[in-house]
Design a protein around this nucleic acid. Sequence first.
DNA 1: AAGCTGCGTGCACATACGTGCAAGGGGAGA
DNA 2: TCTCCCCTTGCACGTATGTGCACGCAGCTT
Lengths: 327, 327
Amino acid sequence: MTENEPGETETVPGKTRDALRAAHLYYMQDLTMDAIAHELHTSRSSISRLLSHARASGLVEISIHSPLDLPSRLEQEILERHEVHAHVVPVPDHASDVDRLDRVALSAARILGQYVDSNQTIGIAWGSTMTAMSRHLVPKATHNTEIVQLNGAGNVRSTGILYASELLRRFGDAFGAHVQQSPVPAFFDDPETRRAFWRERSTRRLLDLQSRMDVALFGLGSPFAEVPSHVYQGGYLERADYEALSRDGVVGDVATVFYRADGSSDGIALNERATGPDFAVLRRAPRRVCVVSGRAKIPSLHGALAAGLITDLIVDEGAARALVEAA
Amino acid sequence: MTENEPGETETVPGKTRDALRAAHLYYMQDLTMDAIAHELHTSRSSISRLLSHARASGLVEISIHSPLDLPSRLEQEILERHEVHAHVVPVPDHASDVDRLDRVALSAARILGQYVDSNQTIGIAWGSTMTAMSRHLVPKATHNTEIVQLNGAGNVRSTGILYASELLRRFGDAFGAHVQQSPVPAFFDDPETRRAFWRERSTRRLLDLQSRMDVALFGLGSPFAEVPSHVYQGGYLERADYEALSRDGVVGDVATVFYRADGSSDGIALNERATGPDFAVLRRAPRRVCVVSGRAKIPSLHGALAAGLITDLIVDEGAARALVEAA
DNA sequence: AAGCTGCGTGCACATACGTGCAAGGGGAGA
DNA sequence: TCTCCCCTTGCACGTATGTGCACGCAGCTT
């Protein structure tokens, strides 16, 4: 293996050099790992690990190009009807919702690199979908990139949702980006507290970043679809709140801000206590990437589309089909 | 597997669809081939083949990004000294020249996609290096791309060099490009024949294309390095020609046009009978990609660099090292 | 209509690959 | 300087993957 320069204690560059060389030999020259091990004077298993590292760290990028003449029919139809660029993730119909979420999140994590670049501000929501994605991010080197939290968060819970800090840290690590956290809960109890907080200078810096986002990344909430609803079980909302949402005809939320089936969100009282960006602010971001899995979220997805919140959609096949068939 | 529409006899799109789906499942979702076979209702071995097809046909693209902060030292040094972008192909020092050529050609074929795009005119030389590359091209869909032969050619020979027509056809197929062939031998016997031929309208069309090339792709000849020289053994040149070349201080050729160590090519009589483009014409192409393997070609490479024929160099590690050390 | 030919399929085998485990080595801290 | 800890390595095993072969199904020829 490549030796580090004498006195160079950092082992990282040496490892990266080896990983690059191994990747060339494996992916460009089709050598077997055995042969590569021989060339680099190490064992085959080390090469196997080195190549895993090369893939996981983004040194090796594997991308799939559909021939432009046959984009999936679903993607085509979604583009025509909703003016949204869709990535349809193939998932067998019999897969469970958990599988579905995982597989969509895995694909989404690998697609995400296409949207992220240097000198960008990227807003990230907090929720189970983003958590699942965070586990599979492929690093990509960027400069001067900022990551900003879109909405407040709560605690760890049984479904394995992370602290927002951990979540954002993972995104930040993956892109070498600076992270701007938000220290607030998902919902304030009192709208007045929110207004007060929003006047704080530290908060204003965050809001300012949000208003200048280049990319927003979020999942969808669907308060009434799942029984029992996971995300809303955390004690942030009370029975009375649910009843209010129900009366208001709410079908979903993006980063704690609720909307109706027609995309409207005016007069929904709970939004006064939400911590996510107003849709007018969100819509300033030129790319708004939404990750959705499961037919249960279709009503919520329809609402978000009606509200014009989405420019790019990553969705499982079943949901995509349901979306198209609904017309 | 995906069925074709009733009445659709063409099986290609169905296969491509399946290949895309399999590729998503394999490369984006990390399923095993077994699992994919199950999802697509076929056998595991079919999936293995389908994925091979997906890679070979460019549906799946695997690329390697060096972190920009550590490009290989060799590439760095070559850039600084010769103002040429180098791709150094790792090859063990003990590899034979044949291995070396094969491995460089394989890598080069996979890198080539970066240079080729729609609406371009691409010039391709004829020789053993190009032949080796042609066996490994990864298809890439382009529109309105033209391929033009740079120099005349001879027949099949023992080393496995192809007819120029077959060679160009492979490049044309890979990029969906129109191919413009040249019906001439490598060298004319009489300079007058050449001049006459060059006045023909069909030839002028070809020369016109050459003068508008966006990319030129070629190997290097080195008439005196190899013993016995393969490329020059075909009976195109006679003993007297070699002696003349030797007297003129020739170190190599690009597409049948010879040059000296200092890059000059004036007064080399044989060039009057050559079929390749004059260097002034060649240098009009903004990208001039040269593929070289083996230390034996170093003198030739130095000459080509001195002549300013190269903008991008794909070279094996040993030769790259020799190039840098020569300074 | 029968035969031929070429392609795609699944099977079975050989090979290549991923990973838990125990051992070794090098640095940080005492 | 010694010790502890963590990271890395190679081995061995089980699993995943590639491929020669024989078969069967079109579509085309005679």
